[in-house]
Design a protein around this nucleic acid. Structure first.
Lengths: 210, 210
DNA sequence: ATCGGTTTGTCAACAGTGATGACATCGTAT
DNA sequence: ATACGATGTCATCACTGTTGACAAACCGAT
């Protein structure tokens, strides 16, 4: 009868068993999480518009109406699931005189870790969906949190805030050239000269001597 | 025998707009152009996905099916209509030693001319639709044509091509921070210090001394 | 053990989309 | 005047995000 668990088998990795009570078949949190995971993967792969609610629901093993019920709308699901934090904090604390190069090297290395790849694809998806005002807001907050806040305190000289945001613009330019436009010249270039060249340009804003 | 566009182009030179009256359109080139204009405006305003072919057709005063008939698909219409060339050629020929600042000033001034605004909004729309491979290709060609080609011949020192593309990445970062993310810090900053700061960073790649 | 209420899931439907193909109409070469 | 190709209209398809009505499971109280 309903003690049968075979329904769960079709969804691959188990979806969080509730600690309390004997495996409930229906659990709001498990459903929410299944939808979240499915949406995160699909959105990161194909972007906002190319992924339908029915596809997300199918991957989560859930009815499409539940996706809306739990998250309100596809856009809110996207926002909740695609918030990303670039793991740059560690680099930001490094020595100031070589920070430009270190930042570029870190950005270049993102694609070689799983977490970094996820962050980059999510950021690309956010970027491409940025005609929506809330997405724009999320992007601004990401920039502020990842770049402006850690930098503005360390920069010496005038216009620290402006310089921090210009550095964010530079990193954003590198990221989009690499992963959005996929400039083949940057793809071919070797890590060392790329880090040296672009790192020097960023360093110019870090040093800030006029 | 092929119903193609070339035939229509050479056969109706007197297409212009009828001064008045509901005179039947009955001219392929006029219809095509009406659709083009409507699509360009709407796409630049709201991006690819937010604009439907029925809205384009309505603005052009045309049946929606004609949009597909004339352009094959909404994506092909987008590609044909959103090809943009940044009017940067003049700046690129200026003196090398102040090219960084000149480039930034030019980018900042784009929004104050009608043609510049159109170019910027079109470029933003292209960026946001860049999950589609043909759009990515268009973006790459735009970068190549507007930045890489004019620059690579003038840059002295090693890695000229790489440096040209990195400069393109910097300008792209500035453009997207300004018009895609709409970073409020950049919006508030005054033109002079923005041009000085970011111009110096770009100049670092132009000079290229290692 | 049975009620009542709340949570969770299912289903059909709606208005909208991009796209297609059948059909109607016009302009003109013969 | 007729025939034919070029141009325009219409209905329709499969699909989308979203909604509301309904059903089934769960839980506490009696």
């Amino acid at each position: 009868m309903m003690t049968n668990l075979s329904t769960g088998a079709e969804r691959g990795p188990s979806v969080a068993v509730r600690p309390q009570g004997p495996a409930r078949r229906r659990s709001a949190t498990a459903t929410r999480q299944a939808i979240s995971e499915a949406a995160r993967e699909l959105f990161a792969d194909s972007g906002f518009d190319a992924v339908g609610i029915r596809a997300i629901a199918a991957r989560a093993g859930v009815d499409a109406a539940l996706v809306i019920r739990y998250f309100g709308s596809k856009e809110r699901l996207f926002l909740e699931v695609m918030t990303v934090d670039l793991p740059v904090a560690a680099v930001m604390d490094g020595p100031l005189e070589s920070l430009g190069r270190a930042l570029v090297e870190h950005v270049l290395d993102l694609s070689s870790s799983h977490a970094g790849t996820l962050a980059v694809t999510s950021l690309s998806a956010l970027f491409r969906a940025s005609e929506r005002a809330p997405v724009q807001q999320t992007l601004r907050e990401t920039i502020e949190r990842a770049f402006a806040v850690p930098l503005v305190g360390r920069l010496r000289g005038g216009d620290a805030e402006l310089r921090a945001h210009l550095i964010a613009a530079q990193i954003g330019g590198l990221l989009t050239s690499l992963h959005v436009v996929r400039d083949p010249v940057l793809g071919r270039a070797d890590r060392a000269s790329l880090a040296a060249r672009y790192g020097a340009a960023i360093q110019r804003l870090i040093d800030g001597e006029d």
